[in-house]
Design a protein around this nucleic acid. Structure first.
Lengths: 339, 339
DNA sequence: GTTAGCACTCACGAGTGCGGAGTGCCAGTG
DNA sequence: CACTGGCACTCCGCACTCGTGAGTGCTAAC
């Protein structure tokens, strides 16, 4: 009973603070929410909540502000996910349905997510590690330069240019291309390194330099670059909070320019729950100490393919963002499955 | 003589204002620059410059600030391009040399440009209109879905997925692929529409639906999407000027998320001079009224391929940015030519 | 054409005072 | 024992004042 009210107070504080971005006091709290008690009682609860570390006051005799821990409790225990309205759902579906290729799906998704959450959105390309090779192409661009194009079964296209020391023989290249196609076509990316182990044996000595460099490039493409691409959108939303945004947005913008950072933000989401929320210092990136990240995995069918999510200030609308991220992840998975 | 000093005064004002971001007064001016005259004289010149619209004062009895017109004159008449130091040049070369493919060149270029200018950088992909087709590939991903991959002679890869109403016949697809390859291979993008006019005639009636949709997609790819891609980097630099940045950075960030805007910023650069500078209201985009854009074209050999540039506040270091943009454009052209 | 002097303007910062929102504590009540 | 009303206290934020100084325009002299 008592515990219940404390939690209700925390919830009310978070809701008010998210709405106003201003420290919230006991009196305002009882006015806005109809908790059936007096401000004085609320103050006692607040004092307790502060002792436990869920809220804090910026300075003496100011209202209370939720701490990271407070948001954590709020997210874990209190907030029911509010489902999107059906017009919203229809809009998502229609918007994503009109995509023409994978790039387009990614770009549209990131825009959509940024727009409905009014936060910075991240969308990771389907990971290569779960994909298999649909086609591989080797094409000479000049006498010493060729391009390798790799097409996955879910429509992702990877390219690499290769610079050769010696002039490329068209015949040798055709030969390698044909045999490589047979060897890797339909194979999963994870099995490629093993397949390549014995691949170069079938070629005569004079072709070895070319075979070797092609092989190395392919190996590099299926290992090094796995999971690499993340698209980003809606950075303008960061500027929406004038000075209200904790500190400057510069370090945040800087961090968001690093693919590595984006991958870390998205990457380590747990697999058991559908949506992962990382609040403030819980983030694995230092510059993101004053932001929260909401991510979800999306997949084609049952297999997990990649993650997407949003980044915003810790005082974000968690319920809304969680719902949006979840819904968009669902739809993206569906779209990719359909195509 | 008199005119000369006026220009020198304008130059000094611009330089000081760019350095300090604070209105500059007559006394400070004679102290920092050794113009051989007294503050009073400078004041007369300032009054004249203000009448002509080159400078303005934020409020009565404050120092002067250059207007867009002032910057324009400064750029046109006064600033000598300061060449990059040779270590800088070497760094550029080395950094770009280690790129593995076109995507990589673009990403590295935008990072490099953002880093040396400390501004937002834009780099446009080589335009398709000047490219020709090196290879085209059609690959079935499922029974009703196929992917078209287009490879240009400068290593750019374009992809499109195609959804068919009826199941795709592998044999028909192979046939179309072979003939399409013969028809468009080596042809310039501009000539593709013409070539396609008579292309479908050689196929029997039952293959027409498939041929038609492939043809339409190819046509779409070589016309609609031409010039479309611009990469962006260094947005964090916008946040560097606290309140000093004219107004909020939000509209600027929003505008920079639109590919169309980026293309307009880059696109209309004049061809006769090597570098184009557009100052404040000279920009074709409303949200960019308080920013300046420095762009240059880069090309492989003599043919113009695309543009790159930087975006920053009007009070930017024009001489430095012009030099950097010019140098980077040169090196990118060289790298793309080499590969 | 240049300079020195002078009166004037006005943004800015420091200092002051006050109101109000908020708190903690304590004593009283069902 | 939990809740409430009351009270003293803190301290932020705002408005106001005022002195200072940088900067200007004008005029008269060189």
């Amino acid at each position: 009973m008592l515990e219940d009210r404390r939690l209700a107070v925390l919830r009310a504080i978070v809701e008010d603070y998210v709405a106003t971005h201003e420290p919230v006091g006991s009196k305002a709290l009882v006015e806005r929410h109809n908790l059936g008690v007096s401000p004085a009682t609320i103050r006692n609860d607040m004092a307790a909540l502060e002792d436990e570390g869920y809220i804090a006051q910026p300075h003496t005799s100011a209202g209370r502000v939720p701490t990271d821990l407070g948001y954590r409790l709020f997210v874990d225990r209190l907030s029911g996910v509010k489902p999107l309205s059906s017009p919203e759902r229809r809009a998502i579906q229609e918007f994503l349905d009109s995509s023409v290729d994978l790039d387009d799906v990614m770009v549209r998704t990131v825009r959509l997510l940024a727009q409905i959450t009014r936060q910075v959105a991240l969308v990771q390309y389907p990971t290569l590690s779960r994909s298999s090779v649909r086609h591989i192409e080797l094409i000479a661009l000049s006498t010493t330069r060729l391009i390798m194009v790799l097409i996955t079964d879910n429509g992702r296209v990877e390219q690499r240019t290769i610079e050769c020391a010696a002039p490329i023989s068209e015949i040798a290249l055709g030969d390698i291309r044909a045999r490589l196609l047979v060897a890797v076509s339909g194979q999963s990316f994870l099995s490629i390194p093993e397949i390549l182990l014995t691949f170069s044996g079938q070629f005569p000595a004079e072709m070895q330099p070319l075979v070797t460099i092609i092989q190395a490039t392919l190996l590099d493409a299926v290992t090094e670059r796995i999971d690499e691409r993340v698209v980003l959108g809606g950075t303008a939303h960061l500027a929406r909070y004038g000075d209200a945004f904790p500190l400057s947005i510069q370090p945040v913008l800087e961090a968001l320019e690093e693919q590595v950072v984006l991958l870390r933000l998205l990457g380590e989401s747990s697999t058991n729950t559908s949506v992962t929320v990382r609040i403030g210092h819980e983030n694995p990136v230092e510059a993101m100490e004053s932001t929260s990240v909401v991510t979800a995995r999306y997949g084609i069918g049952d297999s997990t393919v990649a993650s997407l999510g949003v980044v915003g200030p810790t005082h974000m609308d968690y319920a809304g963002n969680i719902a949006a991220v979840q819904a968009v992840a669902q739809y993206v998975g569906r779209i990719l499955g359909e195509q």
